[in-house]
Amino acid sequence: MIPFFDESVYVANQVVTNNTQEAGTGIAGATINIGGIPAQIVPSAIHLNPVLDWSPITLANGTIGLPLWLFISAGVVLFFLYVLLKWIFKIRRMGAVKGYVTAADKGTQEDIQVWVFGKTKKLTIECLKYWGSMIHYPANIKITKWYHSSIMATITLGGQTAVAVSDDYDHTRDIVSEIALTEAMELFNANQENLQAYKDEHNIGSLTVSPISSFNDYRNYGRKTLEMLYPEGLPIPSFSMFDHTKFRKIFPKGRDGDLQGGIFLRKSRKLRERIRDEGWLGKVLPLAICVVFVMVMIIGASYAPLGGH
């Protein structure tokens, strides 16, 4: 029911608007009896709206009405929560690439955007630390580190630079070089017979014809052989799909980013953990103690009694 009422005096629904403090109690909710009907005295500060204060639902045996404005308020709050949660979920969806924004915000030499390829085929963009050609996590508990030696392996995304790494290799990765090497090695391995015939025909003793299937193969003869075949550089298809797992067979064994490539780095990490920054006092204290000791000696020498004198 939507009541039509006079704003100043309203009794239709057992509510009275009393504009004089004397007549009312001054307390909202107090009731008086008008013509046998219990009615509520409304203080002068309260103004009831005929539409918004209408109660579509009444509780507690008809004594408490839930006004329309309450439902509108709930709607407004729900709308706010909808907007808030929608954005939170939207931003959370970008959690995997949050490092892009973090690195852009920090913008220092040390904070760098890193594309981390996992063995689980996930790619995340993280903001890591770059210091002394090493990429590492800010937190010491994450011991994974990578060596970044090639400026040509630096990615650019939206004006921000980045490097690509994976947890199974302790060096940063260059997508272009990896595609080039993969293609060249696959071609080389697939054409062993032709190469052998070519080698025999031209009597090229230094050309090793044997499949390249590991890092040792590549290091021992593969690199040299490929350079003999392609002296200017490796040809790469202009349009290629990059599969980051395809090149893994060529990674040196046991050189995960977690291991940092061997005992050297693990040793250096232990050393780093032992060394603590002593602070200013720690640095000056030994000299200060020495100076005090010397002063005490000089004063002692100056005033010490000499055989009763």
Binding site: S150, A153, H171, R219, G233, I250, Q260, S268
Partner: peptide
């Protein structure tokens, strides 16, 4: 570019942390 990205001398990687 290939040699910088995928070096055959990997001691540099080992020594980088020590350096």
């Amino acid at each position: 570019r290939i040699d910088s990205a995928f070096p055959t001398v990997i001691e540099d990687n080992e020594q980088a942390g020590a350096r």
